[in-house]
Structure formats: structure tokens, C-alpha cells
Amino acid sequence: MVMEKNGSRVAQGSKKLIVDYDHCSYCGACVAVCPPDSIVLHDATLLIDAATCTLCERCIPVCPTGALALREAVDAAWV
């Protein structure tokens, strides 16, 4: 199902922004480039708000370690 969210078209229920915690160094580089502010860095925790993430993918090339990716949300191993 495709729907409008924060002005972007989002394929709801198909993809999701996922953090690979084996790569993430909690540097927060992704936070500054996220237009809807869906990513928050606490001390050593990176939180992604899937409800506001527009899947714009700006954070993906910015991540120095390649820890962010869009994955099929149905892949339970990644959720």
C-alpha cells in the first residue's frame, strides 16, 4: 500500500530503515541529515522512529560505517 507521509510517498509495510548494530558506532552523523528528525542518538543507542521516517535514504550514504539500510520489513531477522 502506498500512502502520503510528511509530503513523501511511502510504500507502507514493504520497507523499513534498519540499523546494523555490528557496524553502528553511535556517531550521530545520520541525525543531522534526517529531514523529519526520525533518528535520535542517545549515549550508545540509535533510535529510528519508523512512524515518521519517510524512507528518503539520505542517511544511508552519510553513515561512515554503512550501518543503515532499507530492508524488507517482513524479514524478521532484521526487524
Binding site: 543531522a32 541529515v33 529531514p35 552519510v62 553513515c63
Partner: peptide, 14 residues
């Protein structure tokens, strides 16, 4: 006050 930089105006560093 937040403004989101363009990717050209943002460095990814390692």
C-alpha cells in the same frame, strides 16, 4: 532553528 544540510555540504568522516 534546525536546518538540514545538503549531502554536498556534509562530510562523512572516518
Amino acid at each position: 532553528l534546525k536546518s538540514v544540510p545538503s549531502l554536498r555540504q556534509y562530510y562523512s568522516a572516518a
